[in-house]
């Protein structure tokens, strides 16, 4: 069966067709998940971002201009949502550790899930976790999604030079940290 184009599905959603919305979610869920996951570095947080992005897509479709690329729009929302989530988490770090930990345990992750997650956490994830949010975003956008610097600069509202500098710093830090882990 021939796949419908994004703008055709958007038109159908705006006419009230819920199935078309589901089709769009299925089409982009993995790309959005991995973009978010590489920035926020956890499955639970990436899942939050994915749901937010599709909720925003649903609410924003009526304002979506058909001449622009739907995925570019979703990609921007994903990166910005992921960065916002990281900022919120940074804010939470000022809350005493026990309180934050208890809260996390009760609301999102069982002890069993936590053990499984830690087992799967790779050295790359650990290295990325240590980067400042913008460097994280720039690194994962560039490395995993091959996003052009110009596009990243637009998404992050930074200069192209600044974005390149962020990437430069991120590459140096990650390679340094991974080397340390590998040898030490």
């Amino acid at each position: 069966m021939e796949q419908k184009l994004d703008h055709e599905l958007v038109d159908e959603i705006l006419r009230g067709n819920n199935q078309s919305f589901n089709q769009l979610v299925k089409r982009y869920q993995e790309r959005i998940y991995w973009t978010a996951r590489r920035i926020v570095n956890s499955h639970e947080d990436a899942d939050d971002v994915v749901q937010n992005v599709f909720l925003k897509m649903y609410e924003g479709l009526k304002y979506f201009r058909g001449d622009s690329n739907l995925f570019t729009w979703l990609y921007r929302i994903t990166v910005n949502d992921s960065l916002n989530l990281l900022r919120k988490k940074r804010f939470l770090q000022f809350i005493p550790y026990e309180e934050y930990f208890e809260d996390k345990m009760q609301t999102s992750e069982s002890a069993h899930d936590k053990v499984i997650r830690q087992e799967y956490q790779t050295s790359l994830e650990r290295a990325i976790e240590k980067l400042p949010p913008k460097q994280r975003a720039v690194f994962s956008m560039r490395y995993f999604n091959e996003t052009p610097f110009e596009e990243m600069a637009k998404i992050l509202k930074k200069s192209v030079g600044g974005t390149k500098a962020n990437y430069f710093q991120a590459v140096k830090k990650i390679s340094g940290m991974m080397r340390k882990e590998l040898t030490g």
Partner: peptide, 20 residues
């Protein structure tokens, strides 16, 4: 610098993050 970056690229290639 390139030695570290190459090591990083190799590691990322080998490492497979947990997939849902």
């Amino acid at each position: 610098e390139s030695i570290h970056v190459q090591a990083m690229v190799d590691l990322i290639r080998k490492e497979k993050a947990w997939e849902p």
